[in-house]
Nucleic acid binder design. Structure first.
Lengths: 125, 125
DNA sequence: CTGGCACCTGGAGTACGCTCCAGGTCAAGA
DNA sequence: TCTTGACCTGGAGCGTACTCCAGGTGCCAG
């Protein structure tokens, strides 16, 4: 079974070494294995989990809620219903986020068009 | 010409009173008028500008860049080309932002589906 | 004339999410 | 043997964007 060094994981997931250690410290990443020298060795499972974290972070989930999710995962299969609920509610949030973004973007594009129209008016006489 | 109290503006724009004062302090909002008692009185123009700020903020523009934009506006019409450039580049950023959000959302939805599939498997014997 | 409310100021404090640092270990290549 | 580079730890520090606070003013309703 493949293992990865911190450097490889950082490369693959886009999280900095410090962030990986930080996530482990706060319990977002539990029980990372070590080699004989005490250096971290990540499993495929760890990398998969980090990719999930990446999705949740990039969609604006606060760390506190990711911790709740991590806790559910740790508690085992009987929490799957709760996990679905958490993710679905987050998914709705993302949908609203995108909708707001689109609306604001529209307003910005109107402003751009307005400026372009202003520029098209002949200046001076 | 209509003027608005801080409370009204806060209500209309969704910015807190403290945030309105903060924006004025850092120069994002220039020259807000005062009544005889020294209380702020906002014009339609101020509210319009705040709505623009709202769009830029909600689409993730950092305050430092909004300050650059405010500076361009203050410098007058000859900066319109620069303003278009700034807004168009921001608009592209928003587009990328939405694309990333959609991609991450897709992954989250896959996870939800995965959990639902797991739940559909008969447990026990 | 007395609350009560909305507002004022300058300055300190807060929340979040990292990010950096000093001092140290270990293994491999020149 | 020496150096280099990746990694280790605990703890401090930082950037962003507000948010809160104490102490005070002005005005209107009862």
């Amino acid at each position: 079974m493949a293992v990865f060094t911190p450097g490889q994981v950082s490369e693959e997931t886009g999280f900095s070494l410090d962030t990986l250690r930080y996530y482990e410290r706060i319990g977002l990443l539990g029980n990372v294995g070590r080699n004989a020298a005490g250096q971290r060795r990540f499993t495929d499972g760890d990398v998969g989990w980090l990719n999930m974290i990446r999705c949740l972070r990039d969609t604006g989930m606060p760390i506190a809620e990711m911790l709740r999710f991590a806790e559910l995962v740790r508690q085992g299969d009987h929490t799957i219903r709760d996990r679905i609920e958490l993710l679905e509610s987050h998914d709705e949030g993302v949908e609203r986020q995108i909708a707001t973004l689109r609306r604001r973007q529209g307003a910005i594009q109107n402003k751009i068009q307005y400026y372009k129209d202003v520029m098209a008016i002949p200046q001076g006489v």
